[in-house]
Amino acid sequence: MWRALSCFLFTFLVWLAITWSLAPLCLGIGLAASVLVAAALRDIELQDAPLLLLPVRLFFALAYLPVLFAYVVQANFDVAYRVLHPKLPIRPGILRVRTTLKSAAGRVLLANSITLTPGTLSVDVVGDVLYIHFILVPDPRDEAEPRRMLARFERYIARIFE
């Protein structure tokens, strides 16, 4: 019940933001649509999401955004360089990397962050193993390098979801 109510409220707030209008017709359609969505999603469990209601976790979630954005910009210049270089300097491959994160939401956020950042793309997550496609596979002699790439995100995500 609590879950359905929060889903309804969230849906309705998003509707208000999208329509940006308080006309009775708009509000009516929004209410009806929100009830429908809440009813349709009543069996979906919002795992870990309530954790974000804690101010400390919310603070780290917000602090994580600029960090992620910096990596995203760096990723773009990296990919742009490889794409525009006449010789196409890539050495692609898929590696298996273990994560220390335990929570499902944390792993999802980690996988999505990896996809958005330099030369890496999450292909699959099985248990605590991430399969990551690298556009430039790190030197196999340096086994710690893939771990290091994950660790710089895990530091933040652990504070948000663990």
Binding site: P92, L116, I135
Partner: peptide, 10 residues
Amino acid sequence: YNRLQAGTKC
């Protein structure tokens, strides 16, 4: 896979 890299990032 490489194309997805360009697709997701840029």
